[in-house]
Amino acid sequence: MSVDAQTDAAARTEVLIRFGIRYGFLILLVGLLIFFHFSARGFTSPQSAAFIFQSVAITAILALGVTATLVVGGFDLSIGAVATTTLMASAYVMVVWDQPALVAVLFCLGIGLLVGFVNGVLVVHMRVPDLLATLGMMFLLIGLQRIPTEGRSISRGMTLPDGTTAPGSFSEGFLALGRHRFDFFVDNLIPASVVVMIVLGIVMYVFLEFTRHGRMMYAIGSNPRAAELAGVPVRTYKIVAYMISGVFASIGGILLAARLGRGDIASGNNLLLDSVAAALIGFAVLGAARPNAFGTAVGALFVGILLQGLTMMNAPYYTQDFVKGAVLVVALVFTFALSHRAGR
């Protein structure tokens, strides 16, 4: 009898732990929303929601990209630098070369693809460990983006190194990427960057979960040797993962440039850490214990909601990084300690 009762209790605890691992993070998210609804006036208004989405859009896009490299068991530290490089590059193409917005966008996407390809080749063919290869690339890009303008920011009418004045300017169309707002129940509510984020999030989610390419990428991340012996082109997919990461980061950089309206040399410092944190928090969502697009998006939103709520409750700005760090640590405990205890 008592033995039965004990196993019953143990089974119940087991079920509870499983439930906690699976839904814990989402429950926490809902709890936060309820808490802020009552303690911060205006938190649950459409404008506030749009603001939260806008504040995390670029981070989330970069995080979705780095998720692709995490899925194949890699890592990409260069995403922040890719974003700031494309920020500078788009400004340079439009302001100094006086080219239209489309050229700037294509040029930047090209940079993202190229950097991702080089990262992939370094990791796959030169056998440089992923953290080191992408760290090197990060430094290289941070330096490279300063060279054409001798370390200065790019804006309309700036004086170029050769003494002439820059001929071009940011086109209206390009700026719209950062400033246009779509109507959604309320007029002028949703910024274009948020729409881009949502579209990319859905694309990434479908790609990873429902295509054979995504399936093979997860196989590579779990056991590359077995994947190879099952005929998966491991090297190709790894390079593709870094190219996805590069191109997503360049999209983030383009949106950042469009929002700022100038090639600001000091912007985007926090992008790398914030987006990696979002992707890692994503491990804990729905108890996935693996990189996944849905989790990454929720991870980015979670941080955004927390910061917005705390700001509306008058928490000082300098506590923000501390809060992000704390969320990340809790999420990692969820992912690793708890799910291992549940025997998976």
Binding site: R215, A219, S222, N223, R290
Partner: peptide, 27 residues
């Protein structure tokens, strides 16, 4: 050399032949 530990049984079985279980790459 064979098991993908993160995968379920059916995902392990189908891995080499994914192209045959969907259209346009969608599973």
């Amino acid at each position: 050399n064979a098991i993908i530990p993160a995968f379920s049984i059916f995902q392990n079985i189908s891995l080499p032949f994914l192209a045959r279980y969907g259209r346009f790459g969608f599973l």
